[in-house]
Every structure is written in C-alpha cells, then in structure tokens.
Design a protein around this nucleic acid. Structure first.
Lengths: 347, 347
DNA sequence: TTGTAAGCGTTATCAA
DNA sequence: TTGATAACGCTTACAA
C-alpha cells in the first residue's frame, strides 16, 4: 500500500506538503497541488485512518457495539447506521459481542458475564480512538453501558440507558400496544386476549400498558385473565391458545409474529378459521407474517428508522461540541400497523 | 484511554520494558513484570491495535467485505467468521458495501458501479494493514475481487473467484439439486417440475445440473418443459405454477423457499393440497419454510459452516506463510435436506 | 535486566 | 509556498 512518504518522493516534495494538499490547506501553489493530486489519483492512495487517528483527536470513526449480529432486529439497524454515516463521510467499526451465540439467554441478568465482554469491547474502541459509540441491544432492557463520566458521546439503541446522560432510541412499545388494540376495538372486538412475551420484559410490559390504555379509553374493563405470558417462541403461542380461547375472546394480540404462528397452529388443528372465527394480530412484521395464511396483521418495527435516528443524533453530538453532562432524552420511534387478513370485523 | 507511556510512567520503567512484558518477552525480572502487569490490569489498558499494525507487519486483523449485510445469507456467514476469528485471537473489521441497498439488482453486471465501491474498500483495508481479506458475496457469481498480484491472502465466500489464485467457498448447488431430486424420486415421483431462479444465475444452473444428473441416474428422461424460470421472488412462484401443473407433474422443486410460498399461494387458491395432491420442495430453509402449512421440505444452506470454513482457511493461510502464486481450490459445502410435510409418497 | 532511539503513517507547529 | 521536526501509540534493534 502506497504511503504519504512515497507520494512525496515521487513528486519530489516533502511529506508535509502532500499532507497539506490532501487536507485542503490553502498555502500550496496550484502547480504542486495538481502534480501531487494526479499522483494520488493514479496510485489510488488511501490514508491510513487509524494512523490519522493516532495524531488527530477526531477520527470520524463511530464504533458500533452489537449484542448479537445474528438477530433479526440488529442487521437493519446497523445497516441504517452505516448508510447514514457513509452519507456524512463517517466510517464505522463494528464489534459483535455475540452474546446470544455464546450464552443464549443467560447473560442479560448476569452483569458479570455481560461486562466481561462489554468492557473490553468499549476499551478496544476507545484505544483506537473512535469519536463516539453506538450500542445496539438485542431487546429492550435498561442497560448499564457507559460510565457517567464517559469521555466521548455514547448512545443506546433498542435499549434504554440506565444513566440519563446518554440518549436512548427505542421503539414506542406503549403506543404500539395501544395502536394495535385500538385497531382491534375499531373492528368491533371487545374481548381481546393477549399472548404476551416474557413477563419481566420491557417490551411486554409497555405493550400491555398500551393495551390497557386503549381498553380504558373505550371503557372496556381490563380482564387479567385475558392476558397470558409466552416466551416469544412459537410453541408458547400454541400452548397459551386453548385456555385463552376458553375465555371467549374474539381477538388475540400476540406480542410477536412467531407466537402468532404458534397460535395459528393451534387454531388450524381445531379447525378454527383465523380472520373468520377469530381474529389475530402479531408484532414485528417478519417475513413469515405475510407468508402464513391468512396474512397476519401486525405492527412493523421500523428498524431502519431507529438506526438512522441513532446515527443522526450521534453525528449531531459529534459536530456540535458535545457536552457530556447534559441530560439526554429517550427517543421513541413509532411502529407501523400493517393490515392484512387476520382480523375480521366483529358484529 | 491509558497508553503504554502512562503505564511506564506509573511504574517508573521505560516504555520498552512495558511493551516487552506485554509481548511476553523473556528478558524481564519477575519483580517488574508483576508490578507492571498489576497496573495494566488495574487500568484496564488495551493496546491500540492499529498503532501496533503500523509498526509490525502482522496485525492479526482480518478484513471482511460484504456485498450487503442486509441479506439473509450474509449475517450468519459473517457471524461464523467472527466467532472463529475470536477463538483464535484474530480481530475482524467489517466493510459493508451495501450494494443492494444502493442499487438493488443493477450492480452486479456493471463492473463500473461495482468497482467504484469495491476498490476503495479494498484500498481502505490495505491501508490499515489487515492481514487478509474475506469477501462475502450476496449470491453465487464469478467475481473479479482481487488482482492476481494481490499481496495478502484473499478468499471469496458464497461466490467464485475468477482468478484461480484465490480460494472460494460456496455451497454445493449441484449436489443440492441432485439430493433433493433424488429424494423426490425416492418418494415415487418421476414427473418433477422445477421453478428455477433467474436463468443466468449460477445457483440456478448448477441446481438444474444436479436435477438432471439425478434424473439421468434413474433413467428418467429430462423434459425441458418441466423447467420454468422465476426470479427468486414469491410472485414468480405463483406465476409459473399454472402452466407447470398443466404439464402433469406430481412434484415441484422450487429453487428457493420464497417461490415455494408463491406456489403454495396458487395451490391454495385452486384447492390443491400440498403434500397430498402435489408435492413441493424448496431451498434455503428460511424461517418461513417451517411456518407455512404444510411445513416445506427444503435444503438448508449451512451458512455458519461456510463462514467457519472460510475463516479456517484464511487463518491457515495466515499462519503457514502464504504463497501467493499457488493455485487454490473451490471448496463446496453441502446442503442439508430438511424433511417436513410437503412431499407425499407417490404410488 | 533495562533503557535509548529509530521507525511505522500521519498531522501540526513553526521556521525558512 | 515549502519543509524540518516533533508528536501520536506502539515495536524492535541495540546499547548500557
């Protein structure tokens, strides 16, 4: 790989002159500028960004730490962050902690395990002098990512920073639960069952809150028997189906598409027609939701928007001298209702 | 971020002594070693890998260039590469070219567009002195990635290097087409239709080759009317269904799960029962294949295996002094037949 | 056993 | 308008 030094030799000027030209300094004669730039283009010279980083304080590199790249929610977020950064001429560097890959579900209540991977990752990014760090969680939790005296801008995506010093960008689960329940009510349903996610989960809790709010607005009494807890997996949708249906609900709100598929399984087995005899909605808008029959009405999580918003905020912090102490907001990105054929108008 | 210099100051030794200790050099007294290591641990010192790279020739960093991170095939491959590298104490750096995101399908026959992103990406990785580059394609093509006189090890994954100087790791499409056709034949099918991918595509061509080979072995005449071309998308599965069924086939091999879903759509509409009146197989083993009804028999692409194999070969090249000129192989990773309920025994 | 000094690719300061 | 020189964080001969 060609270096500044070699270019300087070829052009018979000093290294600093080449450096000045490349950095757009004004004090260079037009003639040498042309000569140097030509060689730069011919040789396809690329600066070593990390060598620049050693010298300058700003690197224009943003570190992205993801809990696990192999989650359906992570890649679109990361892709959007990268797209936005590219547009504004920032580079990114990705650290994939692979937490689920390493420990399945056993790490996020285990600060020890968690920090044994997170801390070195942060240190690594700091040591290579990234300008800021975006932390991308795998699911919504309150997360202790960055210390309060963190020197560079940090932001938490798809999770909530336990410290108010850092911005968080999350989906608006409460509104999501509210919207989808309102929709069911608008379709004439008043006995609406829920197959929720795991009980202690933030997504679960907030969506239930939204569900309750919608019921309340319509003066429908909240019946806790209508709410069952699954574990986000398909079998749990199947498992909760029977007893929930016995309650006489006319519609069921599954908190993800996968559990809705499990519910479909049960209903198919019993010959109960989705979208006819009973209505079902999901959450996530995964590919499966439009492939199962009937197409599943669901709430799309706008992952690209989340990522873009995070990148936008990060770069804004970077460009407008960042004040570490300021208290930051929680940005909520709304979900988008995708209407398919799984809900029937109830008379 | 703490540096070698600061550690040296704290311990009141020279920078080189600290460096020697961290690099396991033998010529240090046990006493100072202890003293320094303690400070290193306390401060959580992390070396700047890129500063190391500037100085040393080997960085233990592997560059990964992906055509687009937002493809279902890319993330598992990348995850597996990262996992393997982590195990052997290599770091990775990811460049996401986002080619589909930028240009949809219009880039891969346009060398101009393609190189306008690829070349800078390679240059960037070279400038930061990665030890080797893994190129991860979005679909199987012959790709001109690296120049023949490339100085560091390169490897092409999920695509085939046009130069024999670079190893390629791909799925065994021919065997995949063969295996799944053999399976259908073993289930008593002799008139087997195909909804293929796009005609010029390598996956398509090789799977058809495997299909033909299987037919040939069983002395079944190859009938070109049984082979229809789709575009990998769901509607094309639907579109090709009618005329193909008119040919009187008893089973249909769709070259991906998504087109199989399109075929399911058609069959459902016509009241033809999959797994009863007709048999269907797919390819990819995406999540949808086990969510649609009946569960789709399909060929799993072992993406993690592909990634792991690629990483293994890359690191092997790195550790056993790489000889650039040697001609390299094409490694083929078999697919895995996943049997569900979409194929019926034909009497 | 330890430290000095040079060098990796780059930028910044300052003198010529 | 240009170029020495020092510095960034690190490794490595080589000298002490």
């Amino acid at each position: 790989m060609i270096t500044l030094k070699e270019i300087a030799q070829i052009c018979d000027v000093s290294i600093s002159t080449v450096s000045n030209i490349l950095n757009g300094k004004p004090n260079v004669s037009e003639e040498t500028r042309q000569r140097v730039l030509e060689v730069v283009n011919q040789t396809g010279y690329k600066p070593n960004y990390f060598a620049q980083g050693i010298r300058k304080q700003k690197t224009k590199i943003i570190g992205i730490i993801v809990e696990d790249l192999n989650l359906f929610s992570t890649t679109p977020i990361v892709g959007a962050i990268m797209a936005y950064c590219e547009e504004l001429d920032y580079r990114t560097i990705l650290i994939n902690m692979r937490l689920y890959d390493k420990w399945q579900d056993t790490w996020y209540n285990d600060e020890q395990k968690f920090n044994s991977v997170l801390q070195p990752s942060i240190k690594e990014l700091l040591s290579i002098k990234v300008d800021g760090i975006v932390y991308v969680a795998g699911h919504c939790r309150v997360i202790n990512c960055f210390p309060d005296d963190f020197k560079i801008p940090g932001i938490v995506v798809y999770g909530i920073s336990n410290s108010p010093k850092f911005t968080s960008v999350v989906i608006d689960d409460k509104k999501g639960g509210y919207d989808i329940t309102k929709y069911l009510i608008s379709m004439g349903h008043r006995k609406i069952g829920v197959i929720a996610g795991t009980p202690d989960n933030l997504h679960t809790m907030r969506r239930i809150l939204g569900y309750q709010k919608a019921l309340f607005e319509e003066e429908i009494l909240y019946n806790p028997d209508f709410v069952r807890y699954g574990d986000w997996m398909r079998p749990s949708g199947y498992r909760e189906a029977e007893s929930l249906i016995k309650e006489g609900v006319s519609a069921i709100f599954c908190m993800n598409d996968l559990m809705a598929v499990g519910l479909y399984d049960y209903l198919y087995e019993k010959g109960i027609q989705v979208g006819e005899d009973i209505s079902v909605v999901g959450y996530d808008n995964k590919e499966i939701s439009e492939c199962i029959r009937p197409g599943l009405t669901t709430n799309e999580i706008q992952l690209e928007k989340i990522g873009q918003e995070a990148a936008k905020i990060m770069i804004k912090m970077l460009e407008e001298d960042y004040v570490a102490s300021k208290s930051q907001e929680i940005i909520k990105i709304p979900c988008r209702l995708i209407i398919r054929e799984s809900v029937k108008k109830n008379q």
